[in-house]
Design a protein around this nucleic acid. Structure first.
Lengths: 154, 154
DNA sequence: CCTGTTGTTTTGAATAAGTCAAATCTAGAC
DNA sequence: GTCTAGATTTGACTTATTCAAAACAACAGG
């Protein structure tokens, strides 16, 4: 299943074309990869893409991700203190929740739906496009591990 | 006015001590710098600190900022695609507004006040500590520049 | 189907931001 | 005044990402 299924590939190609971009093998591979593994870093995407398209360069992946992000086909997430992540769930203004211990990142549906889902009281003259919301906390596995470590009094 | 005023210095020293950290010249300089210029990057802090304390190394500044952040004395902001910024306004759970064109960053008071000012509907098992909100948009100068460029049809 | 142009990808190098580690130094407790 | 944990310096290194020039390929038009 490392090969791209032709039906899926056709759908991906349409998305790429619809974004006004040329359809190429690296682009299909990157988009396919992101659908199977959202919240991937450039390196992770690169690793995945290499499986089906061994000749691909890291720079190509960075280029494709930049083009997709600019075209609005994927969304770039910049968590604090870790590489940028990419996802192709786009346009629904959803948010993210980040585990401060292990760095795990999950989607959180927006309560409002449309951007910006919040409006600041005083915008200092800014025109506000969107509100980027990132919740920080502890994921379930990390909570459990902390409890264990705590009871061991270590 | 590159020298630290002794009265101010005493207040800073108290803050540092209260955080359980040793009071040193680089630490006072960093904290003083952040009070005069909030939202400074490590490099900017370093440049400022050098003025009053020429022997200071960049690593010392990184170290001080890390210690302060860990102690809760300063807050670290990680805007997408630019170096981390630091501010010493802390504990009031305020947010930020970022200009997507020039990268300018301003404070925005939180409507709610206490963290987390928002709560996600489905936390995926996470324990949520805080909601990091960053508004993105265009600052006033950038809006004007875009209008000018637009009317020049360039 | 063939060709040309424009946009992509490769190759290779460079950068910015930050981290690590060992040796030296010093603030503050005693 | 002395001692020790913690801070700072020095210097190298890593990670994530970007830049630039040359080779290549998608797809519009003939």
């Amino acid at each position: 299943m490392t090969q791209l299924d032709p039906l899926e590939s056709a759908g991906l190609a349409d998305s790429v074309r619809a974004a006004g971009l040329k359809v190429t093998a690296p682009r299909l591979a990157v988009l396919g990869m992101l659908q199977h593994a959202p919240h991937s870093s450039a390196e992770e995407v690169f690793a995945g893409v290499r499986n089906e398209l061994p000749g691909t360069s890291v720079q190509a992946v960075y280029g494709v991700l930049a083009a997709f992000t600019f075209a609005g086909l994927v969304r770039r997430i910049d968590p604090a203190s870790s590489p940028a992540l990419f996802e192709c769930r786009v346009g629904d203004n959803h948010h993210h929740i980040l585990c401060v211990r292990c760095g795990d990142l999950k989607d959180v549906d927006c309560v409002i739906g449309a951007a910006p889902c919040l409006t600041p009281s005083d915008t200092s003259g800014f025109t506000v496009y969107a509100a980027e919301v990132t919740f920080t906390g502890l994921c379930e596995p990390c909570q459990k591990q902390l409890v264990l470590e705590g009871s061991a009094d270590q």
